[in-house]
Design a protein around this nucleic acid. Structure first.
Lengths: 127, 127
DNA sequence: TTACCTATGTGCACTTTACACTTAAGGTTT
DNA sequence: AAACCTTAAGTGTAAAGTGCACATAGGTAA
């Protein structure tokens, strides 16, 4: 997974969640990449998502048929590529939701098991 | 991060959770790779973890100082490389727990937002 | 001998991401 | 006009993790 270079990061955030998040934002309101970057970074204050990551995910999702795009003139500034979700995109979002529910359950199971450990602080007995 | 080839898979399972799960299993009981594979696949019935993935994670974690290993003879069969967790490994496990708690919260936030959507079934209105 | 089970590992393709950089339109300041 | 800023959309490259297939080797049973 790739998580690319990751030296001074704080954690796992957004791992594999960018696509479903983008799909949900576009479903709520069709828009362009630059605004999605701002929505993204407004929600997760402090945790900046790379513009390149957003743009690449959008291009990929269009290749895969999850979104459609078209150029749109701006009142002031360069043209924007506006994205809208497709039926396949809605299905992909629904599937992602199912996966995330499973993943959440898995994390909960792990954390429960971890919290039941008696020796999670000190070292285990050497054999 | 990737998740390599992924055509007929069922989901996101174990995404980025292999290391902490291995560390927890080794903390519970120092053991070798082959047994870890079986423990792993016993817990997640149906979801098979690739042996190569387990072995590679174990070698990596030893490079990073989270575990230590030594060869151990088997009563019947080839020798086993038995792993034990280190102090650094216990710290890494604790840090992974913090990250997973964050990740769980993030997934919950996403799912809450998704469930509040009025139009998650049908298509949005075209502009 | 052949075949199987245990046990560890590698080679390669593929995906995703972070960081750095580029291109370009339009407006503002000097 | 020139320099600069903001908006907007990308690309190049390296790094990291995973799936699939394959390789290797000890031991046991037919």
């Amino acid at each position: 997974m790739a998580t690319g270079k990751n030296e001074n990061d704080t954690g796992i955030p957004l791992d594999r969640m960018i696509q479903p998040m983008l799909l949900m934002l576009i479903l709520k309101k069709p828009t362009h990449g630059y605004e999605l970057i701002q929505s993204f970074n407004a929600v997760h204050e402090g945790e900046i998502v790379e513009p390149g990551t957003i743009y690449r995910n959008l291009r990929r999702m269009e290749r895969e048929g999850f979104v459609l795009s078209g150029w749109e003139a701006s009142e002031s500034g360069p043209a924007r590529r506006k994205y809208d979700i497709t039926e396949d995109g809605i299905k992909a979002l629904q599937e992602a939701v199912l996966k995330l529910e499973k993943q959440k359950q898995q994390i909960e199971d792990f954390l429960t098991e971890y919290n039941d450990l008696p020796n999670k602080g000190g070292h285990s007995i050497e054999n």
